[in-house]
């Protein structure tokens, strides 16, 4: 496998791992907030979860675009 595809796969894997860690960070911050304010789930939860989904789909689209870009470059 050429080096550019290996680099690309590494970037994508690292990005998605970063996404998962960050998502955990978002949820952890949310739960610490709920504890601090003695509140159960609020509208902020759904907004944050919505943002994480947008983040996920943005990553997915960028990954596909980057893959296509690399493919076009080395075609």
């Amino acid at each position: 496998m050429p080096w550019y595809w290996i680099s690309f796969i590494v970037i994508v894997i690292v990005s998605f791992i970063k996404f998962l860690i960050l998502r955990k960070g978002f949820l952890k911050s949310l739960s610490s907030r709920h504890y601090l304010l003695s509140e159960s789930s609020t509208s902020i939860d759904s907004k944050i979860i919505f943002v994480t989904w947008i983040y996920f789909f943005t990553l997915l689209i960028v990954t596909i675009a980057a893959g296509l870009g690399l493919y076009a470059y080395f075609l």
């Binding site: 680099s7 690309f8 970037i11 911050s29 944050i48 943002v51 947008i54 990553l59």
Partner: peptide, 27 residues
């Protein structure tokens, strides 16, 4: 090819920090 890969890394990092600060603002 090197420039292409650097720009992909940059795009992924920009997206990461953009969403990080968006969520930080909301929290």
């Amino acid at each position: 090819a090197v420039i292409l890969l650097i720009s992909f890394i940059g795009i992924f990092l920009s997206i990461h920090f953009f969403f990080l600060y968006l969520v930080a603002w909301r929290l």
